[in-house]
Design a protein around this nucleic acid. Structure first.
Lengths: 346, 346
DNA sequence: TTGAAAGCGCTAACAC
DNA sequence: GTGTTAGCGCTTTCAA
């Protein structure tokens, strides 16, 4: 930054027109004489002009930026903010989410600001960030049921869209999956394979998604003459899946089918099964959920219920954009369908 | 946003002082009478004032934002921009990087803007983004040797810091690891275990880091009487590690020690070894590099060369900050030490 | 179709 | 220690 960056004024002088005209050309507004338009473009080229974002934002009242926030439910005492970020990023789920968001934003020359909000202070920072106009809205990914952030944003009428129905009711828009149907697909597939003794490893049951996957699975099994389904609660991590499976196996050695509420846990399940000398899928069929990278990294590759994460994330961004542009509109929700992806594990 | 957001003016009126005074209080500048300070704080509280970022940036000429960019070396024809993002995020390496960056930024109330620059157009967008003042500088993580972005930024004197020495020489600051030393630690450990027939699986050899890990390993082996080391080039992915190992094994069934240039490949190596009926570490000892999540997710957990990623990423952010604040200073580099983490695989 | 001019909300001299 | 004032670079009426 040795020399001062050229401004609209400089370009105007160079092109022999007014600032307003240059502004019109830059913003692609019609009603500008083609000749002048060319002159202006030439001047922009020559001066190496780049519009100043802050100045534009000041008048348009738009940051043209959105925040991608991953929030937890910790309180201020917790100083593990960083571990939280690392843990979230380690979840393969996240890569697909970012990919979907970026896919929507990039064509619009926008880039997401990454925020992790595990503590109360961090959540207040998110609210402040939006109130300052640093971002026009937020895409929220809650990792815990007790997350107060959605309500905080709704309270201030700050534009936001959640991934998944909020566990704590709040008047906000969200994008979700038909979890029950997804679980049903898994149940039917296990049944069709001839599994007679099935179990499910659930996610944290205070999360609506985990609850619905369980319910959908149980209901379908019940409808097919299996009123009771073995189950154990996991934490959506591979280790939790592995130990939940070990626990189940200890009491029920004859399990021949398992539905894990996400791929990471299914991966853990496979590990435990393998260590106990059982073959997948011959001895025990395993189905995961999400269709994220562990699904195909797993040996054997996992049969899983696909959640169209990229599309869902893109839909969130679209909804947010509409909310930002349209001013106050009431909350909406978009529900996507799940799909069974059959690989080797079941 | 029903009612207009309160401005400095409103707070000033409410507190019965001038805008300047309110500004001083907000920015924590001394020389403000404690009583007035309290009055102003009260007014801020009552009005619910939040400073407008754009207005501030306009005058301070600081966005107080930095870009975290992951760049590749693709050209414009490539339309796989999204896959690129997903692939990068899937790499466990990335979570630690973000964690380190966020750890440095958060206390300063800053958040990184995430950008993926795999195509030429995307790289130009990164440059434009910085030139517009949307971000004050960039943290660059190149995934390919031919990445032209560093040079592009240097050309425009835009503040940036790279992760790793640039493969294409460019006058930019960077933070790196003493790769050679790290590889030496791995070699010595394998030797100390009594391995006689060792092999190494390298990363893409056009990357300086991969090259140095190989050189460091070979040199140490040579110094200990092993002038020739078997090697195969991988692509830093688990699959590439698995197949490189299979290839090596085909020609040399007696391999008893392997050094993989990253954990992901080491994981693939373990998989291949396991499938070939060999035990790790009894039949073959395996050492990885990075100490990222696959290292402890792997069975057995990997002995690996730890790269203090979080600290490195934080150092990058610090260097960038200095560069932004200090104006033009010449490129610097900071090199971190590697450390051997002994687990079960070797 | 183009230009003149009025701010957007804030900081930073400078004066008091 | 506090207020006054002049912009920062841009968009956007409003006239011409």
């Amino acid at each position: 930054m040795t020399r001062q960056a050229p401004t609209l004024e400089d370009v105007a002088r160079e092109a022999g027109v007014s600032r307003a005209t240059v502004s019109r050309v830059v913003n692609g507004i019609r009603n500008v004489d083609p000749a002048i338009q060319a002159a202006v473009r030439g001047a922009i080229e020559r001066t190496g002009y780049a519009p100043n974002r802050a100045a534009r934002s000041l008048v348009t009242r738009r940051a043209e930026t959105i925040a991608l926030v991953v929030s937890g439910a910790g309180d201020d005492s917790e100083s593990e903010q960083n571990l939280f970020a690392a843990r979230v990023l380690a979840d393969p789920f996240f890569g697909r989410v970012v990919s979907g968001v970026v896919g929507f934003l990039r064509p619009r020359s926008m880039y997401p600001v990454l925020m992790f909000a595990e503590t109360g202070a961090a959540r207040r920072d998110v609210v402040a960030y939006l109130r300052q106009g640093s971002a026009d809205g937020a895409l929220i990914f809650s990792t815990h049921a007790g997350d107060p952030l959605p309500a905080m944003l709704a309270e201030e009428s700050l534009p936001c869209v959640l991934f998944g129905r909020p566990a704590l009711p709040a008047p906000v828009s969200y994008v979700d999956l038909a979890h029950r149907d997804g679980a049903r697909l898994a149940a039917e597939h296990l049944l069709a394979r001839g599994c007679r003794r099935v179990a499910t490893i659930t996610g944290p049951l205070d999360l609506p998604a985990a609850q619905e996957r369980l319910t959908g699975f149980q209901d379908t099994m019940a409808r097919h003459g299996h009123p009771y389904v073995l189950s154990a609660e996991g934490g959506f991590t591979a280790d939790s899946g592995a130990s939940a499976m070990a626990g189940l196996l200890a009491g029920h050695a004859d399990i021949d089918g398992v539905f894990a509420a996400n791929d990471l846990m299914a991966q853990g399940v496979c590990r435990t099964l393998h260590e106990s000398g059982r073959r997948v899928p011959d001895d025990v069929a395993v189905i995961g959920f999400d269709d994220s990278s562990p699904a195909y990294d797993c040996r054997p590759p996992l049969t899983t219920v696909r959640q169209p994460m990229e599309e869902m994330a893109a839909a969130m961004a679209r909804l947010l954009q509409e909310q930002i542009e349209g001013g106050r509109t009431r909350p909406t929700s978009v529900i996507f369908d799940a799909e069974l992806v059959v690989r080797a594990s079941a």
